[in-house]
Design a protein around this nucleic acid. Structure first.
Lengths: 220, 220, 220, 220
DNA sequence: ACCTCCGGGACGTCCCGTTTAT
DNA sequence: ATAAACGGGACGTCCCGGAGGT
């Protein structure tokens, strides 16, 4: 749970797309596609080698373009990393909304949500790259959004809902639970990355979830 | 809980120092002092800027020497990082032995131990730097020892002791408990580092400890 | 007579230039010009100071560019040396064809040819540099073509022609004559370089030629 | 025939050693031995890698000493090269005297002499190293003695003797014969070094000798 | 006298992230 | 959008002094 969240609850993207201009010029279309290709290629490299070891040349080669073309779309290497991180964040609102829409009790909603997040961390290249970039944030520049605090806030709200629903064990603070979940999830994801390339992430997260939620949840 | 541990119990350093020759050649003494100064200066910079952003020149400046002097003691930058990581590990056996020597029940021994480890992560510059270097290990070279597995093994043994002493809640696996503790501690330490420079590490660790050990320990 | 020759006869450059596209892209033109300037500047320095003593900075200064520009055209210093050596070789086929086209008897053709080669060794900076680089070949890298063998082969063929024309003294082996001519010419060129900067090369070659061809040629 | 010769005829070393002080202090003896070991080790490396690629560390390692020890005996790397070249030269007078002492006619004396010199170029590590250092002389410093001129002078004298003895073909200049022999021998030796590591030096020299002396000698 | 240990600057190569001319 | 050029370091390593032991 790496990301700086916007804090306001998830805006359904479908709606916001309604507001977008229907007619886009084909050139802008192509530019957007190129931009996107660059981002994905960069994400692959950032995930594999990290930010400092990835050169602009590497990225240009990976997309089959010249360095100049890359510089046409992004002012510098930091901007590319920034966009990767932005897209890492951009996906969460929908996922959160989806989890909430299932109508489960708060604690179960959280479980479902983080299960889904874990899968993204294992499978989605942009999410993976964004996580690594956040871990290397002080090698990049001070411009990345602060990580962890958004998720902490979202989860604090959800754990507060759980408390109000009587799902929390007496003495458990929603904020502490949120902080601990965010930190521990990060730890699990990172250690899994180092030791197994995140192939065992789901198992490790399951182990963590069982212990943590036993301590958080009220006894039935 | 970053480190690859040797597994063998701590050698009583006091004793071995008694056996050391009293007279050491002063030149070698100076060299050892210089080496140590380089390590500490490098640790400061690695902790602050990370491995790739720290140049040999930076280190030389930090100790007030020239690059040539640094290269007399270390073949390359990687070797310096390696030595920092080595010293990060070198302290744990004594700390583990110390915790065990208090004669507490297994679970309390683990708590005391990790409390102490948390303080090291907050205060000891070499420990801090070693942790960061391990996090950046794929930017360095494949030569660093594998992190986490040593601590996981140590803690698995201690949780097994706890199980045999009847301290574990039914259904809790010692190995899973150890893995989760190692990962979650790493997460707490890392997030605390990013958000507060580890000043709130003890508080965050306390929050994690209360939840995790409630789930792990048998009800009294 | 330093060079590894290709063996195939000279391609008439005039003709092939007729066939070349008249319109070349101006940028590539500029690049080719720059590349060529770098080669000539490097040749001057290699001839003057040798390969190890010539730094990339020296070359960049000599052409009035920056190191980065040089590295845009060549991957490393060795590649520059390689190209100088390549151009040293590239000129021989035409010169050989020219000598042969005069329709002289074989032995006289050889004399005319080597006279011309001697002038190149005295006047052509790339030829001079290439010769020196070949002399320093084990300081560079194992990638330079083997010297001397190409010329030995060419001259062996020509001396064989002479033998068939009855121009060789009885008992003189064409191969031995070729080997000796190649080695002795190299020696004359080198000693002349060391002692006079090759200003007396023609005289020294004349002395050698008179003696050697007296021994090789059949008495009239 | 690389060397700068002193020009005065060979001084029998046995004699000059008679004049040396009989009693030397044992420490100086050790120093001389150490010096000599350094020279031989350096010669091995110079012959193998050339001057620029041979570092003081290499030499120190080769003799099993520290760099400081080497610097005690020689002021700098150039001095070591200088001494190697000096010893390359130092052996010729005896060899020349030996050849002359056989009482052969001048031309045969020259042949015997150069045959012997060729063997030295093939077998004697200091001679080989000195030759290579002379070839790399402008990479070292302007301090090496001028090569070739000494041998040219010696051989000019000997060819003049031959002329006076009626052994020279009409029209052959003793000076030109000497110059050509020196240059051509250098060429043969160098090409043999590059192509076969001087294993075929004797054969190549024999080929050269047969041709050259046929041209030089009066017909019987 | 001979040698070791430790440290000091100085470059050399390579490469990287970026603008300028086209 | 490309091709060409620009500075600026980073790393490594080399040649070499001084301080001091033996």
């Amino acid at each position: 749970l790496e990301a700086q969240m916007t804090g306001k609850s998830a805006t359904p993207r479908v709606l916001s797309e309604e507001w977008a201009p229907v007619e886009v010029r084909p050139q802008q279309d192509r530019a957007a596609r190129t931009r996107s290709e660059i981002i994905v290629a960069a994400a692959r490299l950032f995930d594999y080698k990290g930010f400092p070891a990835t050169s602009i040349s590497d990225i240009a080669d990976e997309v089959g373009m010249t360095k100049g073309a890359v510089y046409f779309h992004f002012r510098n290497k930091e901007d590319i990393a920034l966009e990767v991180v932005r897209q890492h964040y951009a996906g969460w609102p929908d996922i959160i909304a989806e989890a909430k829409s299932e109508g489960l009790p708060p604690l179960e909603t959280i479980k479902v949500l983080v299960n889904r997040v874990a899968r993204e961390f294992r499978d989605n290249i942009v999410v993976k790259a964004g996580a690594r970039l956040q871990a290397e944030r002080n090698l990049i520049g001070a411009s990345l959004p602060r990580p962890y605090v958004g998720w902490t806030q979202i989860l604090t709200e959800m754990f507060t809902d759980a408390e109000e629903a009587g799902q929390l064990r007496a003495g458990v603070s929603p904020a502490a639970a949120a902080r601990t979940l965010v930190s521990a999830f990060h730890g699990v994801q990172h250690v899994s990355d180092i030791l197994t390339g995140r192939t065992d992430l789901i198992d490790r997260w399951t182990e963590l979830r069982e212990l943590l939620f036993f301590a958080i949840a009220a006894q039935p």
